Simulated assay, not measured.
Amino acid sequence: MSSTVPLLVGISGGIGAGKTLVSQIFSLLGIPIYNADDRAKWLMANHLPLKTRIIENFGTSAYFEDGQLNRQYLAEIVFSNPDKTSLINGLVHPAVGEDFKLWASRQPTKYVLKEAALLFETGSYKTLDFTIHVAASEAIRIERVKSRDVQRSTTQIKQIIEKQLTDELKNKLANFVITNDDSILVIPQVLKIHAQLMEAKIKN
């Protein structure tokens, strides 16, 4: 691989862990951020090959007449059916992966960050050079989500948490862990990881 190609670094964390806040700190250091979840929504609405496959598997009702994604329709199908969840993920995640690599190849930096909610759950962390997990206790995460998303109940938030891998497992899978529970300052942790990544080399 050419030395001009940036290191591919993933950053993730369970709901309420604060991965977006941490990503913003990296951004202030000049690191480009690829938001995989936002980009997935864009690709589902605008990437013709992906749209075609979604229609083939979920029907024409997956899109409105104006071509925009019918999120509610898809969510109702996918949410309660693990097989359908796997199917949509199998369509979307590869498209996001290719889009990310193309985007990353155009960035003039030592490394780039791919921010994704389900980085470890989907296995996409295996395609990256390094990964960062943002961790916080379940109690803190629940309070954060409730304060920013008042319509969600504690039960609903716990259901989302239960569908994600545990922090313990993600801590083991990640190359770096950032603790974001107010017990330790976040910025020094980011600066330390940033310094290490600036010196790191692409894995063989």
Rank of each mutant, 00 (worst) to 15 (best):
S3M: 11
S2M: 14
K126N: 12
I77T: 07
I54V: 07
N175D: 14
L29D: 01
K192C: 13
Y73R: 13
V96M: 10
D181E: 00
I160E: 10
Y111A: 09
K84S: 03
L43T: 05
A95N: 06
N171Q: 03
L28M: 12
D66H: 02
D129A: 06
P49C: 06
K19Y: 06
K192H: 10
I132F: 02
V78E: 13
K51H: 08
I202F: 08
G123C: 11
L185P: 06
A95C: 11
V134F: 07
K163T: 15
L87R: 13
T122H: 06
Y111K: 03
R53N: 15
Y63G: 10
P188E: 01
K192E: 13
N35T: 05
D66E: 09
G18H: 02
T179S: 03
V134T: 07
M198H: 00
V177L: 02
T131A: 10
E121R: 04
K203E: 05
K51I: 12
L185Q: 01
N81Q: 13
G90H: 05
L169V: 04
G67F: 13
S147E: 09
K84D: 13
K146Q: 14
V78Q: 09
G14K: 09
I33D: 04
E56C: 09
P82D: 14
I187F: 06
S2A: 07
F64G: 08
T155G: 09
T127C: 08
K192N: 13
S86Q: 11
K114W: 10
R53T: 15
